[in-house]
C-alpha cells in the first residue's frame, strides 16, 4: 500500500520541501532520542543480573 492521497481536491497547503525536511529532521531527532534513552536504560538493566 502506498501512502499517497486518493483525493485530488484542492488543498490550502501541500507537502512542500520545508515540511518534508522538517518531518525527516524530526524522525532523526526522535529516533536518536529513543536510541539514547533505550541505550542508557539497557546499561542500567545489566546491573540486575550483573
Amino acid at each position: 500500500m502506498t501512502d499517497s492521497p486518493s483525493s485530488t481536491a484542492e488543498r490550502p497547503e501541500g507537502a512542500d520541501a520545508a515540511e518534508r525536511t522538517a518531518a525527516i529532521v524530526l524522525w532523526v531527532i526522535v529516533g536518536a532520542g529513543l536510541v539514547y534513552g533505550v541505550g542508557e536504560t539497557i546499561a542500567r538493566v545489566t546491573q540486575l543480573f550483573g
Binding site: D3, S4, P5, G14, A23, L26, V30
Partner: peptide, 21 residues
C-alpha cells in the same frame, strides 16, 4: 485547523514523528 489540511502528495508517515515529538 483548516490551515493544517494536507495537500496532495503528503506522506502520512510524516505525522507519527510529530506525535512522537
Amino acid at each position: 485547523r483548516e490551515r493544517t489540511v494536507a495537500g496532495p502528495g503528503f506522506n502520512r508517515w510524516f505525522v507519527p514523528p510529530a506525535a512522537l515529538a
